[in-house]
Amino acid sequence: MVLTASFGSYPRPDLLREYQIKTYGKQKKVDHVATKEDEQMLVEAMKQVVGDQTGLDIITDGQLTWDDFLATVAAGWAGVKMGGLIRFYDNNTYYRRPTIVGSIENKKPVLRENLELLKKLNPGAKIKAVIPGPYTLYSLSEDKYYKNEAEGIAAVAKALEKEIKELKADFVQIDEPLLSYDLDRDLFATVNLELVKLTRAAKGKTIVTTYFGELMACIKELQEIKADYIGVDCVSFESNYEVLIQSGIKNVQLGLLDARNTKLEDVVLMKDQIEMLDSDNIIVSTNCGLEFLPRKYALRKIDLLRKLKGA
């Protein structure tokens, strides 16, 4: 069965974007507590985001309050301070780099609230929660505390596990772009062990997803990951689709549409690609979050996704 899904992030609706700029300037403070007005604005924005995803099988909350790409969850952790701006992989986007200065502790999970709001507004689609993976989040950070990378990754994973346990969603997507972008093989055993813990802690079906990178470099490792689905970006490297086919991985979140460019994909070609995978367990999606596109183009990509429903 082919399901259509939003990947994760979504362009902020105008009303929310304008409100956030007017109220908080360039960036809200790390310790900011949402006001009543913030909450009302988020409800209005989320309604629009849910409406935009109408017709998809699996929808997300659009990560509308995530100020930092993937690093948002760490902002409130004990032992972590948010540092200067760093480029987010090969994009013209930046995040505040978390600096680990002490023992990490996640005292207050932050992802549940927006997910609950999404469920309240959801007209009947399946819900997907998105969370950064421990390997990627650790590598996006600067570690001044833990003795070695394995220890740091485990500490980040423990904090993420607390988030995951609170997420009541049909699907939980763990974003690990680094697995394909720049995998350190010496660390994979540690990473895989932590991913097993996280997928076990999840209440819904799990997706461990890669993006931005070349699949050739990590396909053997991806075959070892115990998740319900493996996410693959078939856009950033043309060879990725072929590598996927040859790998024999069948349960796939297939990123066929480019969320980093406005050009529209050929529906017939995408249907062929889905068919050639010869699998009953495919989720088709964009290669990464739609927030890299302005809303009007994100809507066009969603229109294409709808055409792949049940392909």
Partner: peptide, 17 residues
């Protein structure tokens, strides 16, 4: 003419097409 794309925090630019 492009439309708004977020760069970081609440900072956007009109990314052209």
């Amino acid at each position: 003419e492009g439309d708004w794309v977020r760069i970081w925090g609440n900072n956007y630019f009109r990314k052209p097409v």
